[in-house]
Design a protein around this nucleic acid. Structure first.
Length: 316
DNA sequence: CAAATTTGACCTGT
DNA sequence: ACAGGTCAAATTTG
């Protein structure tokens, strides 16, 4: 029973601020029109959706006319801060310049731990929401498709009561750009085709979608065709297997669809290769539409429908 | 050889 | 103490 009526002053301010931002972003979006580079378009979309999510997180009932979120079921888990306002540094500030706390004390050697604690505390206050992503062998991927970011796996853990382990990802540019966005992917116990992706924190990295290294002799592909412009989204993923890259971070850009708010990009979650699970009974008797083993079976073709882009190799 | 993943140890909040 | 989350060394991958 969360008293949502107890909007503090800060929350109100934040709310109106966000609405302002959203409004501006939308105006900009419509103003950009079609004469815009794809890059900018994506960026604007991201800005807009960021605002929308933020507002959602504040339990702001989105008016149907203004905000229409993704049709898919998005389980927004409002951050239940025990009394503080969920302030997300990057969100409010807008600037990626969320300066690192200046270390006041002279803790010199235990800095690591300090950092850890700090971050751990801070992390809790980051906005959090989750989406359900479903994959079907021939239907492709369904779900909110807005994950254009590149993630780096940093952990995997067995969860009590869950059949499959949960894997943890963080933004690839955490260190380089101080981007603290993370996500965790958990395969549903029941439905083998469903994954629950939980995001924490918004991206502050500038290169959310595309960041062309300006000063480097990048071979600018001039084919600005209406092809699946798979940009540097997942720069150096591992095309080991198609499946692997799929699982890890699939990003497909479908072009034609002028879905207004839906992003054309899709990212596929990760699946644990082997869930060496002790015999907890019999785990394997689930109705395998297609089993995990299939995912690793090169015979099985999952990419029947969607454009296999197989990102261009970026060699050096 | 650099970047990404794996995996057990470690940290923190119930 | 335990479970969930993260770190970091070792390993794999490109």
């Amino acid at each position: 029973m969360e008293g949502k009526d107890m909007l503090s002053w800060e929350q109100k301010t934040l709310l109106s601020e966000l609405i302002l931002g959203l409004d501006a972003a939308k105006k900009l979006q419509s103003r950009l029109g079609e004469a815009t580079a794809e890059t900018d378009e994506i960026l604007v979309k991201q800005i807009v959706s960021s605002y929308e999510r933020s507002l959602l997180l504040l339990n702001w009932s989105s008016s149907p006319t203004t905000v229409q979120l993704l049709p898919t079921q998005i389980t927004v888990v409002p951050v239940k801060t025990t009394g503080g306002v969920p302030e997300s540094p990057a969100l409010i500030n807008g600037s990626p310049r969320s300066e690192e706390f200046v270390d006041g004390g002279g803790s010199s050697e235990s800095h690591h731990r300090q950092d850890y604690i700090f971050n751990s505390k801070k992390r809790k206050m980051l906005p959090k929401w989750s989406e359900k992503v479903r994959i079907s062998p021939e239907r492709g991927l369904e779900g909110p498709q807005d994950d254009v970011y590149s993630w780096r796996k940093y952990g995997q853990k067995d969860i009590l009561g869950a059949k499959f382990p949960r894997s943890y990802y963080r933004c690839t540019h955490r260190s380089t750009q101080n981007c603290w966005a993370t996500k965790q992917v958990q395969r549903s116990d029941g439905d083998a085709t469903v994954f629950e992706v939980t995001y924490r924190g918004t991206h502050t990295c500038s290169q959310a979608a595309i960041t062309p290294p300006p000063a480097s002799p990048v071979k600018q592909k001039e084919n600005t065709r209406l092809k699946p412009a798979i940009t540097t989204t997942t720069t150096t993923q591992k095309p080991k297997d198609l499946l692997q890259s799929l699982k890890s971070n699939l990003t497909v850009r479908t072009d034609g669809l002028d879905v207004d708010d839906g992003k054309d990009v899709f990212s596929f979650p990760d699946t644990p290769p082997f869930y060496t699970y002790g015999d907890f009974g019999h785990v394997d008797s689930s109705p395998p539409i297609f089993d995990v083993s299939d995912w690793f079976n090169p015979t099985v073709e999952i990419d029947t429908t969607f454009p296999t882009f197989l990102h261009e190799s970026i060699y050096y």
